[in-house]
Amino acid sequence: MLSITPDTVALGAARKGVITAGFSPVADDARAINGTVGDITSADPRMTARNVNVYYGDKLAINNVSLDIGVNEVIAMIGPSGCGKSTFLRCLNRMNDTIDICRVEGEIRLDDQDIYDSGLDVVPLRAQVGMVFQKPNPFPKSIYDNVAYGPRIHGLTSNKNDLDEVVEQALLKAGLWDEVKDRLDEVGTGLSGGQQQRLCIARTIAVAPEVILMDEPCSALDPIATARIEELIDELREQYTIAIVTHSMQQAARVSQRTAYFHLGELVEVGKTDDIFTTPRHRLTEDYITGRFG
């Protein structure tokens, strides 16, 4: 079920060949600027993106990005603002469909399925690829109803007991259960910012997705709440595949196994997180990590 079609393998290999053919520890820009430095593939990929271009109207926002997202790994996407990392993330569960002028080219697969296939239905796709947003966005409903929303609309449970169970499990996994178990009827928007964001994560988990996309989930939170979320991400990794966009390099270093560095709509470098932060191979990556810009 996770096998890659021969085409994809060939394409990936070919691409890898091109890229790996001539890099030096610190690449000279002339050669590396059009291709991605590092290994874009994953040994056990859940999602594969190939040659993705995204346009907003006439403007090219993402240029020829290819990247695998592996099972049970956390992949962090970093880069200066406007580099396209969030846009790329939103492509992975077709949230860009909600923006009228946005157009996506290329191929993105979830397991075997091309998610931009014209016959594909976004509703089950989004049930499999959940998303957590930058600003905590709980619904103005009770905590219970927030978490139960997904299971209810998808008809995942058949009775109240099952639903209670799903809600409790989701809140437990999100590390929020102990704080809210006595006030499930209170409005979700009354929680603190960090709690709200964990509630949103619980809401996503309750649908039991395969992949969770997180778009700067901690940017609106204080350091303590951020630490809680980061812990949570680490725990969730065992059951889910997680792609996280972050502004903070420290956060990327703390939570992820692989890191992808985006710059001006291009994927500049991908690699094991430890390697990227200790021995970046592309000059742009190095400049960004050492704080020369960003």
Binding site: L2, V123, A127, Q128, H154, G155, A208, P209, E210, Y240
Partner: peptide, 19 residues
């Protein structure tokens, strides 16, 4: 695959059932 994956197959089946 590991256990959650099995779980998830069930999820997607249930989603598709009411779709």
């Amino acid at each position: 695959m590991n256990k959650p994956a099995v779980d998830q197959t069930r999820t997607i089946d249930r989603v598709n059932a009411t779709l």
